[in-house]
Design a protein around this nucleic acid. Structure first.
Lengths: 210, 210
DNA sequence: GTCTATACCGCGATAGAC
DNA sequence: GTCTATCGCGGTATAGAC
């Protein structure tokens, strides 16, 4: 856990800045904000990081290393591909519900137009995560394009949490993500059986639309 | 098509600002930027709109009115629920591929933390769209929670286009969204049959992972 | 390793001429 | 209906003391 003599000081700054970057994005966070949250002055930040850009990069990589480990562990814990899918959807939906930082960081990154930054993030933070889901998709369903299936699985899990911010104000919206058991069942049933093959039992409680 | 005596002037500003807000979001666009793109000065914008906030609101509503119409038309054009699903996925994926503005505007809105703004957007821009998908989900599969199914369908179509910005740099990634025919077949097969019930024929061409 | 002080720039918005 | 000019604020980053 030790990197160099400055790592404790840097880590305090990284933890504080993850919260801020997740909330308002790279451009929405000022070095003054980070300094205040870290209990330092702006000038002190520039002793540890050469620029706001580099601070952002290190903060994002720091945050996503943990995610990659959680997902890899969830897959290792199950034996059959189907059980692995259920396991990974379960831990992912728990993480997304309890920790909005990861979700929002990913949203900001999808909107980033800085290609250099995206390449660095891909290599340092997302490659392992994607490859893990690619392999799972290959084993789950050889008849599908594994890349497309992996993206579909990731999207069907993540998107509802992203959209919740907007959909919560619409009439007829059911907050299924609030009930993890129902959400898990919905996702796994839809992915495995589709709406043609799924049995009646798949139905989760629904409020009537106004 | 006529609203009031100022509408032509306002519309020119709205069209210009939609492009800018889609690219860099509310905070990333300055009134100076909008003025330059509209061929006016910042002070002139304040004759047509009382604030940057109100300009943003009108621009988003203006953009999404067209989307709601396109989706509603796609559903009207087909008779059975299954055909309606295929039709709506088809036009949506075409729109998302050809017009990044709508996709990115939606992404910025999902990240917005201004509840008042989200309520206004919901009522003015997204309510009809959501209700249309809710009804389609109900008819497609009564055994699923219609709200959850509607969100899943929307997510499985939209998410790949959002993630493309990041995933394009990862080894093994297949740009299936670039081939609309394959993407359409993938989505409809997965949603209707799942990976258990889908026939071998569902497979789309794949590059091998490195 | 952290501070105070500051250079320099771009922001939303407004006043008042035309 | 559009302009020029400007106010007051907050942004990144740096110089130099301690």
């Amino acid at each position: 856990m030790k990197y160099d003599s400055n790592s404790e000081g840097k880590e305090k700054i990284l933890v504080a800045s993850i919260l801020l970057f997740a909330e308002t994005g790279f451009d929405g966070v000022s070095m003054r904000d980070v300094a205040e949250k870290s209990g330092l002055t702006p000038a002190a930040l520039y002793y540890h990081f050469p620029s706001k850009e580099q601070l952002y990069f290190e903060a994002v990589v720091f945050a996503f290393r943990k995610v990659a480990k959680i997902v890899a562990d969830a897959i290792s814990a199950a034996s059959t591909p189907t059980a692995q899918l259920e396991s990974v959807v379960d831990v992912a939906s728990r993480m997304l519900a309890e920790n909005r930082n990861i979700l929002r960081l990913m949203q900001w990154i999808k909107l980033d137009r800085n290609e250099e930054r995206l390449r660095r993030f891909g290599a340092a933070a997302f490659q392992d995560l994607y490859l893990t889901m690619y392999r799972l998709a290959s084993e789950l369903a050889p008849q599908f394009n594994p890349s497309a299936l992996a993206v579909s699985i990731i999207g069907i899990v993540i998107f509802p949490f992203e959209a919740h911010a907007v959909f919560q104000f619409l009439p007829g919206y059911d907050d299924l993500e609030g009930s993890r058991a129902h959400f898990l069942k919905h996702v796994v049933t839809l992915l495995s059986d589709g709406f043609v093959g799924a049995p009646q039992a798949a139905k989760a409680p629904a409020t009537s639309i106004a």
